[in-house]
Design a protein around this nucleic acid. Structure first.
Lengths: 362, 362
DNA sequence: TGCGTTGACAGGCACGTTTCTGCAAGATCA
DNA sequence: TGATCTTGCAGAAACGTGCCTGTCAACGCA
């Protein structure tokens, strides 16, 4: 067949192929591919000519064909934990949103895009998308999705250290024990005599490590543990648990809440029992939400730095995908940040640690 | 070549192709494809045999090859608005998270997955991923991404009615004018004499329609407009604008805030000026966050029902992708919901409209 | 027996790239 | 002047499916 054949039988008018570009430019397919991808040894004149013709025809390379040929899709799976049929976790909206946002940015900057996928292998969607690698959030012990992915030879990086002997390529996490210890010390320094904990009934690593650290701290300082656990995926249960915690006969004079909504839950419960914060009750919760800067009073929060975690996870994963032997360790620990506000300070409400406002005066 | 040839030269041990399954099962490639996809006329015995062999070999069909052949990838783009380099909008965390969650669920239920993509066409990522269709959130007037996508023949469904003559396939939106009118009437019923508005300086449709509705309402009832506008993407600017609004000589006795953090911003500003809510100042803001159920006092919020919007957008898009002439109109209006709490009620704080708590008494 | 029909499968092409190999023509060199 | 090397490009083989077009046997029927 002659090369001047522009349209084959089934060619859609809106989709120009590399063949059409080659014919229109009067060169071969190889030359077009090399010119557009910066490969080969072509004079700049030819390269420019081909690019111009491609632009004129509105040529867009087929991602499917490229993926089939090269074996790289430029897609990264983002596995979100699910409760029942709903993806994402209910309790960590702000954390997940920030983390996903940073991960998306980092991936885009290196030419990758994120695909949201369920943590359950039940869906057949998993086999319908060509992935270069996957990010998993808080994988469970013998996570079937992770093991299957690793079996296929795909790199897997997890947010949260893997439980058991889960064979992930790399992981990123905070030092949750140190964070909890730091908070408890901070509350004790502020004058707390009996510190309570609002924790979860789930078995994920974050909850487990944090609770263990609390118990160890109590043992160390000789305090009886005072804690309430509730199913963290139930938004109403948190308020009830906060209420229970403050209704106990051995009511704590300081509380640390492991989950995002615990701050408002505890504030509301404190009001119901007539407890003033921070005078009668010191308060800290783990949250990425900015609302705690403006509550009455502002609540001290622990930030897990989801932006840094999301970025680190993506960098590690893409390094593994592209075979770069990163000089970074495959285990990365991101420091947490305690944002101290009024709720955990007995002394006069001095300047709080928060980003400076634009106007100086009030 | 004989058919017993199991491994070709470059075959990775971990990846079995359809060829290997055919050879191992002693049938042809066609038979394997038909057996696994439920096509063709095969006796159940053959079908079961092929499936069993495929399972034994751990066969996973290549998504890239399937996409190349069928033209369908099972991927839906989710275009998120960006401010600068950061994807997502800062002000609508909860809205976006809920909407994306529902969209993810709906897509997975029909066998599709979502790909997070930036609204800027600057990134070359767009041409590296094979999409069946795209969801765009609040597209701007002559959105280049949208026009390019429809030029390629891809269906595009937008969350938010398209401005100008943007040629989207379908769109889903709330009736923002009616929602604002309803809120203003609600506040007037509660005794408000001068209602203020906290709005944005951006030109998106939501801000524009809501502000216009406010101005029309003011004209209708003969009230001078009292509003402050600020760049909604700046988290600090909201607090400043709320402060400015309450510092005006013509201070309003009721305020509606268009953006999620406005509730806490306004509560904080009211405390600074010694205004009691709701006695001195009635408050409503547009938010999907649950924190307003537990603030002091609880704040009345307008919910845009992001879950319903996310679901509707995906259904319309997949219907368009699969060529189903949906009996639904291509323009869908989702009703909003006003969740009335203490902050907008002058009368005694009666039972608030919120999901019932598990325990009856306090 | 001849002929259309139907079930059960095999052969092979096409999807649109990337890339390996090859091949002429000019340049350089012993 | 022939041999070797670069430059500038073309041919064609994959990548792994889906599906269209056969082929062959069995079968019903006149």
């Amino acid at each position: 067949m002659s090369r001047a054949e522009t349209s084959r039988r089934g060619s859609r008018p809106g989709r120009a192929g590399i063949r059409d570009v080659a014919a229109a430019a009067g060169v071969s397919i190889t030359t077009v591919s090399d010119a557009l991808n910066g490969k080969g040894r072509l004079p700049d004149a030819t390269r420019r000519h081909v690019r111009e013709v491609a632009d004129r025809l509105g040529y867009r390379p087929s991602a499917a064909a490229r993926t089939l040929r090269t074996g790289k899709s430029g897609l990264i799976g983002l596995t979100v934990t699910t409760y029942g049929d709903e993806p994402f976790t209910f309790t960590e909206f702000a954390y997940f949103a920030e983390m996903a946002r940073a991960a998306t940015s980092a991936a885009l900057a290196r030419g990758y895009a994120l695909v949201i996928l369920p943590a359950t292998s039940r869906h057949d969607v998993w086999s319908n998308v060509a992935l270069d690698g996957t990010v998993v959030i808080d994988p469970s012990d013998q996570d079937p999705v992770v093991t299957e992915l690793v079996r296929q030879g795909l790199p897997v990086v997890s947010d949260g250290r893997p439980a058991g002997s889960l064979p992930v390529t790399a992981w990123v996490d905070n030092d949750h024990e140190a964070a909890v210890m730091g908070i408890l010390d901070h509350l004790a320094d502020a004058g707390a005599r009996r510190i309570g904990l609002l924790t979860g009934t789930t078995t994920d690593t974050y909850t487990h490590l944090s609770t263990t650290a609390y118990l160890r701290w109590c043992e160390r300082v000789g305090q009886d543990p005072v804690y309430e656990a509730y199913p963290a995926h139930d938004p109403c249960a948190g308020a009830v648990a906060a209420d229970r915690l403050l209704a106990r006969p051995d009511r704590p004079d300081a509380v640390y809440g492991l989950f995002d909504p615990n701050g408002t839950d505890l504030l509301a419960a404190a009001r119901r029992y007539g407890l003033r914060v921070p005078d009668d009750l010191l308060l800290v919760c783990c949250s990425e939400s900015t609302v705690y800067a403006n509550t009455e009073p502002p609540v001290t929060t622990l930030s897990l730095k989801p932006r840094r975690i999301g970025t680190a996870v993506i960098q590690l994963l893409i390094d593994a995908i592209e075979g770069l032997d990163s000089d970074q360790p495959v285990e990365q620990v991101i420091p947490t940040e305690l944002i101290v506000r009024t709720s955990s300070q007995r002394r006069p409400p001095r300047t709080t640690v928060s980003p400076p406002r634009s106007p100086k005066g009030s």
